[in-house]
Simulated scan of single mutants.
Amino acid sequence: MTERVRVNLDTPRAAPVELTDADAIEQLLSDSYSSMRVRSRHPARLRYQRVNGGSFALDTFEQSAVLDVRVEPLQTIVVDRSTTAGVHARRGADISRYDSGDLFLAALPDQPYTARVMPGRIDACVIDLALIARVAATAPGRRPEPVRFVGLDPLSAELAAHWWSTRCYVAELLNNSEAAASPLIVGSAARQLAAATLTAFPNTALTEPTVADRCDASTATVRRAVAYIEGHATDDISIADIAAAAHVSIRAVQLAFRRHLGMPPMAYVRRARIDHAHRDLVAADPAATTVGAIATRWGFANHSRFTAVYRKTYGVTPQTTLRND
C-alpha cells in the first residue's frame, strides 16, 4: 500500500518524515512545491523536514537514489543549495549542472523544469512572491509591473556566500522557540531572506531613486513616517508599510531618512523599539522577567547585540536597569 504522508505547511516546525515509496515521495514533494512527477530506477529513501516562517519556509531533504523530476511552474521563488547532492537541471533550452556547495534558483516562478537529482542533501528556501514584491517595491503608482528574476545563478560567489550565511542565521533563529514565537523577529528574518535573494540573483528591481523620489524626500515625509513608526513599534512593520503611511515611495522614504536623520528607516524602527524595551526594563520586576524576555518581545533575537546597543544608548547594561529600577 502506498504511504500517504502530508506535511502540514502551516505548522512552524514539521516533524521530519522518511519515505521509501516512490508515489508517496512524489505526493510529498508536490504538496511542498508544485505538481511534479518523480521517478527513480532504484528504490529511494527520502528524508524531509520543513521549518515554516509564514511567508517563507526552510526545507531540507536527502535522498538515497537518483531522482528524475518534472515540475510544473512553482509560483514561488525556490532557492536551492546542493549541499552534498549534484543536480542536472533543464529549464527551457537552458541546461545546468550544479555540484556540492552550488547555489541556484530552481526555476523562474512561471517556468516548468526537469531535473536529475543525485543522492545526497539539498537545502531549499521557499519564498512567497508577495514577500519579494514588498521588499523590492519601489515608487508605487509609477512602476506597477512586478519584479522579475532574469537569471537563475548568483551574480557572484560572494553574494552566494552572503545568501547562505543569511539562511543559516534565519534557520538558527527559527530553531530557538522563543525567537520563533516573536512576530517581530520572524518578520525581520523574512525580509532579510528576501533582500538577500534580490541581492544575490539578477532581477528587474529598481535600485536608484527617481527625480520624484528625491523631491519627496522631505522633512514632512520624515514626520509622517516617524509618527507611523512610533505608533506601530509593537507591530511587524516593513519599509513598505512606512512608505505607504508617509504617502511616498520606498526609495523616497529611505532617502529622506538618510538626508535628514542620517540613518535608514529600519534603523529608526530599531531605535524606537529599544526605547520601548528600556521603558519595560524600568517598569519590570526583576523577579518576574528577564532581560532576554524583554529583548525578544521587542524583536531583538541576539541578546548580546541587544546588550551592546542598549549600553551604547543608555550608558549602562540592560541588566543594571532591570535591577535598579
Rank of each mutant, 00 (worst) to 15 (best):
I250Y: 10
A243L: 09
V226S: 09
S249R: 05
S218L: 06
R270W: 04
T289F: 06
R251K: 13
T234N: 13
D280W: 08
A277E: 04
A196I: 01
A245P: 05
A189N: 03
R259C: 07
I274Q: 03
D280V: 08
H276K: 15
V309F: 06
Y268K: 15
Q192P: 02
I237G: 06
T199Q: 11
A220H: 15
P318Q: 02
P286K: 02
T204K: 01
P202T: 00
A283Q: 11
I274W: 01
I229M: 14
H303L: 14
A233H: 14
D216F: 05
D280T: 11
K312Q: 13
A267E: 15
D216H: 07
A293W: 06
W298L: 08
S238A: 09
A240C: 08
D285K: 01
F306Y: 04
P264W: 09
A245C: 08
A217D: 07
A189V: 04
V248N: 09
V253N: 07
R323Q: 07
T204S: 04
C215K: 12
P286H: 03
A243V: 05
A220L: 12
A256Q: 08
V222E: 11
D275Q: 15
L261I: 10
A220N: 14
A284R: 04
T197P: 01
R259F: 08
T197F: 02
L281M: 05
Q254K: 10
S304E: 13
T210W: 12
N203F: 00
Y228I: 09
